[in-house]
Computed example of a mutant assay.
Amino acid sequence: MTEATQRTSDAGVSIWLDDLDRNRITSGNLKELIDTKNVVGVTTNPSIFQKALAQVGPYDEQLKELGKINVEDAVRELTTTDVRDACDIFSDIAKKTDYVDGRVSIEVDPRLAHDTENTEKQGELLWNMVNRPNALIKIPATLEGLPAITATLAKGISVNVTLIFSLERYEQVMDAYIAGMVQAAENGHDLSRMASVASFFVSRVDNAVDKLLEENGSDEAKALEGKAAVANARLAYKLWQDKFDSDPRWPALEAKGAKRQRPLWASTGTKNPAYSDCKYVDELIAPEIVNTMPEKTLNALADHGVGKPSIEGTYEESQAVMDKLAELNINIKDVTDELEADGVAKFIASWDSVLADTQAGIDRVNA
């Protein structure tokens, strides 16, 4: 293991890779990252599968076997195969960590982001198709996604809640998780084998807020550039600590083997070249955190990451950042609402490309 990734792991951060494709699985690259860079899980999303399925070659053999299949069914077969195979690679880690880590995520169709009933149905379908205990079903944290999260957990299905940007929505997500675990217990499921993470997006907040600060142009605004995203995430960690320490439902669930839904930092690749390429890892280190990162960020961390705790003791400073933004008439709720809508739209666009590329593959191998 590299020193920096080991330090980060020792500080309580589970390092997950935010990427997956068939070449990474079959070449041994994924196993190599486990062995050399402390990678203990994987997340996928529609944009990741867009890149994967656009490749000519890696998926042709399975497409030939599937024949002239409906494109929607083909995409599900291809993606669940990759996730199932990745789950098998992480199986030992899952068992060693009591199914806390070793998890691989697959997301419901983003076009269902505002459709509670069909999100719930597809979440169960994907779970059954992957058929591995260390899978996670990704459901967006839209208002319509919240009841689907609870209903999916109630079936004993582990969930990764994605596209969280605001503290307000994050609290609703944790409530949805606890409610789902209460129902899972009532339904007789083994809570000790279940897990959940709440994917709180980071760098996109700086992208949006920094533009507003640049438009303001004042010295006060300039001083806040690059600070909103980390402050927002640090306050989310405090919210997480407070929630699971104080919610009256939690002790009984924990006694039945339930695990706290861990915060997961997503969108951790640095977009602004003026900032450290490890910024959204090194500035957000604390116990029981998951950080899912693209390979470029993982390599930067391995090469020169600090890997030391950096959240505890920063809450007053973080709140001060948010207060100063408000004084400059930057409404963080407006920012995060727009980011959520934009995130859903981007994933839908990626999914449309997935369908088009897969249809092209079906046509090509069956020509």
Rank of each mutant, 00 (worst) to 15 (best):
M1D: 05
R7F: 04
D18V: 00
N23R: 02
K31M: 08
K31Y: 01
T36P: 14
K37Q: 14
N38V: 10
V40S: 13
V42Y: 08
F49L: 01
V56D: 15
P58K: 00
D60R: 02
I69C: 04
D88W: 04
D88V: 05
I93F: 07
K95W: 04
K96D: 15
D101N: 15
D101S: 08
R103P: 14
V104Y: 08
E107L: 10
H114M: 12
K121P: 15
Q122H: 06
G123I: 12
E124A: 15
L125W: 12
L126R: 00
L126W: 02
V130C: 13
V130S: 12
N134Q: 12
A135F: 01
L136Q: 11
L136W: 10
I137Y: 00
K138L: 09
K138H: 05
P140M: 01
T142D: 04
E144I: 01
A151S: 05
G156M: 11
V161P: 15
F165A: 06
E168L: 08
E168Q: 13
E168G: 12
E171A: 11
Y177C: 12
A179W: 03
G180V: 10
Q183A: 14
A184Q: 02
N187I: 03
G188T: 09
H189L: 01
H189E: 01
A195E: 05
S196E: 03
V197P: 07
F200Q: 03
S203R: 11
R204E: 11
E214A: 09
N216D: 15
S218F: 11
N232V: 13
N232Y: 03
L235G: 08
W240V: 07
D245A: 13
D247C: 05
D247P: 09
L253H: 02
A255E: 06
G257E: 10
K259Y: 04
P263E: 02
A266Y: 06
T268S: 15
G269D: 09
K271F: 09
N272H: 08
D277R: 04
D282I: 00
I289M: 15
T292D: 07
T292G: 11
M293F: 08
K296V: 13
L298T: 01
K308L: 13
P309F: 09
S310F: 04
S310L: 04
I311T: 03
I311D: 10
A326C: 07
I330V: 14
I330H: 05
I332F: 08
A341R: 14
V344M: 06
A345I: 03
V354G: 08
Q359Y: 06
